[in-house]
Design a protein around this nucleic acid. Structure first.
Lengths: 117, 117
DNA sequence: ATTTCGTTATGCAAAATCAGCACAACGAAA
DNA sequence: TTTCGTTGTGCTGATTTTGCATAACGAAAT
């Protein structure tokens, strides 16, 4: 028996360039939790190189500063999210959930059953 | 001034493998119109190789026959969609539009303005 | 002052993926 | 029997992704 499921994705673009999607959302949340890029990379099981590249690509198109980085210190360094980034993540988080939810709902309507609400 | 926009994507999976998304949807519609894979590839401006690979990947997971191919003949050959494929495309087409529309609506709600309806 | 430490940042090469050219096989119609 | 534009596929070069290795950093600890 083959299982048919629906999946959806939402992302934001700035001037037509990818800006914030699911992967970067999770990465930024991990940075928020861990207090550094490398901690976030470890948590997500990706290389620091990759995490750094994603953030750099994002910042290249960001209309405001995303991160505050500090290097050095006994702890090596740290990076924290700006308030604007936190607000952005909050808004995107609800958008993301709403769209995923609607996708499931419409899928049920168009494919399996009928009722939409 | 940087322009912030939302984009969204919906696709179907069979047993966790990508099955039908936007690209394959358009490709199948082009096959329907042109009556052959190569005509579809020409219409979409992609190589026959690429179009063929997409259809092959899709058929590998399809729970029913997607295409009926005929090779040979003065016209070279042809491929047409099965009735099941046509029904699938119809359902996916409405799903796709509904989700994209909702994404725009939620974006307006979460980011720029307020009213959702 | 000097050392220490785990960060940030980046060059570079290997690996994996993608794109597309080239060509064989096909077989109904002419 | 010939002809034609398909379908199907091998292969190669280009492109993207991945990750190893290492430099730079600088506040805190000594």
């Amino acid at each position: 028996m083959s299982e048919l499921t629906v999946r959806s994705k939402v992302w934001l673009e700035v001037d037509g360039e990818p800006f914030l999607g699911d992967g970067r959302y999770r990465l930024l949340r991990a940075v928020e939790r861990g207090g550094s890029i490398s901690a976030a990379a470890r948590e997500l099981g990706i290389s620091y190189r990759k995490a750094w590249a994603q953030l750099a690509a994002m910042e290249a198109h960001a209309p405001f500063p995303l991160l505050e980085r500090r290097t050095g210190g006994k702890a090596g360094g740290a990076t924290v999210l700006t308030d604007e980034t936190l607000r952005l993540l909050a808004a995107f988080g609800t958008l993301r959930e709403a769209v995923n939810h609607d996708a499931d709902r419409h899928f049920a309507h168009c494919f399996t059953g009928e009722s939409t609400r």
